[in-house]
């Protein structure tokens, strides 16, 4: 059922976890003026023009977080304190991404938060040569079949999903966006595209879906407007082959046979100096194209930036 949140005299409060991140910062910038923003993050928050934000510098796995729920009657929680850095040991990442989220959701349940927005990723489907084009939300999460290093992301997604079904009265929105790129976000793909010489697997040129950080921030904001529950893929203006993307951002691609690249990456990773775990290469070899029409229809969302605007902003600051 689609219904707009009714306007009340009390100012509504939204908690944004991980607000110091590049994407979360832009989400906060776009939150409508009738909302009060409470931010939680590990790094100092850069000020946002025209907004007063109640900022708490704390770790979401700590008990101090619950005090925010006690003191403030929160209407909405946007959970973006997810650690994607593959160099952080899996034990630590699991603690933040899974245990931290479990505690946060427990608090949401106890203090009767009406809406929770959770940011997962389309990576949980995994890049696989057998992937159909346009993966829908009910597709199996297969990434760990070959890429065990990000098992915490799959567990995060699965836990959020079961929690959503357990709490039908809370509007729970789990977003699985495609690759988010832009000048503010730092993830595996943007880091890769900002290289001067970009290694690509020889003979593979999969289609890759991208969404601009501004469009993604807009998508997250759209979640505030509709009281729905569900898992949603989020896509941007479209998909392009890897080499075309590299041409547009202006890098110089050099092909490496994937067997060589894979082994080298695995050896470097084992030595502790590799940039990424070797199975990440699969995202440059096989497609992982998701179907975002459900989100676009249910939340009346459409990306505003074109493919070329989205891609060029990644490197040209």
């Amino acid at each position: 059922m689609i219904g707009r949140i009714s306007m009340t005299t009390r100012r509504k409060k939204v908690l944004i976890t991980g607000i110091s991140g590049g994407l979360a910062h832009q989400v906060a910038e776009m939150i409508p003026q009738n909302w009060d923003i409470i931010g939680v993050g590990l790094r100092e928050l850069r000020p946002i023009k025209g907004r007063k934000i109640e900022f708490h510098k704390l770790d979401i796995t700590k008990n101090k977080l619950e005090d925010i729920f006690r003191r403030r009657q929160l209407d909405c929680v946007i959970h973006m304190a997810v650690n994607d850095n593959p160099r952080v040991p899996i034990k630590h990442r699991h603690h933040i991404n899974v245990v931290g989220t479990m505690k946060l959701l427990e608090d949401c349940e106890r203090y009767k938060v009406k809406k929770v927005v959770l940011l997962s990723s389309a990576n949980v489907y995994g890049a696989d040569p057998n992937n159909p084009v346009y993966i829908s939300e009910d597709h199996p999460l297969r990434v760990t079949q070959s890429y065990s290093e990000i098992s915490d992301k799959v567990e995060f997604d699965s836990y959020c999903r079961s929690w959503m079904y357990k709490n039908p009265s809370i509007s729970t929105i789990i977003l699985r966006p495609c690759h988010i790129i832009g000048s503010q976000v730092h993830n595996n793909l943007t880091g890769y595209l900002r290289l001067k010489y970009i290694p690509i697997p020889l003979g593979f040129d999969p289609m890759i879906q991208v969404i601009h950080e501004i469009d993604m921030a807009r998508a997250i904001n759209a979640c505030l407007r509709y009281n729905l529950s569900g898992i949603y893929n989020v896509v941007g203006p479209g998909e392009l082959p890897l080499t075309e993307i590299i041409n547009i951002v202006g890098g110089a691609p050099f092909p490496i046979p994937h067997v060589v690249g894979y082994s080298a990456l695995r050896a470097l990773w084992a030595l502790g100096i590799g940039p990424l775990p070797a199975p990440q290469v699969e995202f440059l070899m096989y497609p992982c194209i998701i179907d975002g029409t459900r989100f676009q229809e249910d939340f009346r969302f459409s990306p505003q930036l074109s493919l070329s605007e989205t891609l060029r902003s990644t490197v040209l600051y």
Binding site: P129, N130, P132, V133, L202, G203, D205
Partner: peptide, 26 residues
Amino acid sequence: FGTMPLISTFAARHGQILGDPKNCVK
């Protein structure tokens, strides 16, 4: 075909699709 370098790209650029019922329906 999807696992083969060059061939997979060649097939895709020519509009040939991996034999999956979901692809066919789409």
